[in-house]
Write a protein that binds this DNA or RNA. Structure first.
Lengths: 210, 210
DNA sequence: GGTTTTGTAAGGTTTTTACCTGATTGACCG
DNA sequence: CGGTCAATCAGGTAAAAACCTTACAAAACC
């Protein structure tokens, strides 16, 4: 019997495309959802073998949905599908018990492979992602910490507002070197490497307005 | 003979899905691209009937690619595919000569219809979008003119993506000094003085995603 | 009570930015 | 035809950012 799949992505068109690809591979797509709530409801109702979840969904994102699904249908295993390679997302997903992490930028064959591996009880990570995880494991054992400290959030906001490190230091009454340390730690934690990425992250977090 | 299509989206998996759907409808996908540059090159080489472009692409976004494609292959008509319903995006797309504007959140049938209409010389806008356009027309909403040249917009996008000046230069096949000049002039025109401000501006303009 | 995190700070190196002046070519505009 | 502007490139300088290592006291966490 074919592997029964629940497919969740907020873009119907993308979902239809994926469905076509998956059914062509012999999988059975038993349900489709466009947000995390709907995915959870359908998982409870259908108890699919695999839930393929987009990370970026309205109402409840993929991580939240994964946690909820494991509550209502423990036999369902989750594969997330996303465009994000950042360690932060990956590690959060793994902590939520997700068994497969596949990038949308890769070939569909990776998703197919992920579904097969995960349904066999194994795990599957897109190759770039594996590096990220190994890195995080080697460097910080298992503490990904997407959570920045209050001070770090403060510094991040000022940086995203366009303040130079010198200005940040003077605004916070700390030395330039300290401000620099904060900045470095932030980049380390988020696995980001340029100001531009910090700014985009701060906007996503709602720390500053675009 | 089938309608010949060039498909551009930065996510290979999404592209494969769309390709499957389009070919099932009897269209011929003659080329695939994962960024605006590649799309432009392939359009020149293949002169497809229709170019289906994602708006959010690295290196060169859909709007830039649409303009470039009309230069190198005037017979190719552009349909953009995006998740954005905001007037800003729609109007900018229309000003770039785009004939079809389809939302990823809709059924694939809309894309199919758009391709058919546009290849017949007509236009197609997803229904929510039509409202936006009519509204904008009635209220005479216009995109604020930032007076950046096409080249400057291109450089701005790359900078906002986190590319260094050296990388920008190599991506555009120009010297580092030229890339630097563009960057300087952008800052001058916009009266901005740091990378962070450029990034926020680029996001407001829809050149990059947060 | 011991461990970890946080906030603080300093040393140094290399790369990148921001700003300056100046110049050439080609295209478009009136 | 002359003027403006876009796009190209060069040289130089000073500031800033990015990366590295190291350190220590206080707060927070088990």
């Amino acid at each position: 019997m074919p592997i029964r799949i629940l497919l969740a992505d907020d873009h119907q068109m993308v979902r239809q495309g994926l469905k076509a690809l998956l059914e062509h591979e012999g999988f059975k797509v038993v349900g489709e959802a466009s947000d995390g709530h709907q995915a959870t409801r359908l998982a409870q109702e259908l108890t699919p073998d695999i839930a393929v979840l987009d990370l970026a969904m309205p109402l409840m994102n993929g991580i939240g949905a994964a946690k909820a699904i494991s509550q209502v249908s423990s036999s369902t295993k989750v594969v997330v599908l996303t465009m994000h390679t950042e360690a932060q997302y990956v590690l959060e997903a793994l902590r939520a018990g997700i068994r497969g992490y596949v990038l949308k930028s890769r070939a569909a064959a990776e998703l197919v492979q992920a579904i097969r591996e995960v349904s066999r009880g194994s795990t599957f990570l897109s190759s770039d992602i594996s590096d990220t995880v190994v890195d995080a494991y080697l460097n910080k054992v298992d503490i990904p910490n997407d959570s920045l400290s209050p001070r770090e959030l403060q510094v991040l906001q000022l940086v995203a507002e366009g303040k130079t490190t010198k200005e940040v230091a003077s605004l916070l009454n700390i030395s330039v070197k300290t401000a620099e340390s904060h900045r470095t730690r932030i980049m380390e934690k988020l696995d980001l490497h340029e100001t531009a990425s910090l700014v985009r992250y701060a906007i996503r977090r709602g720390l500053v307005q675009p």
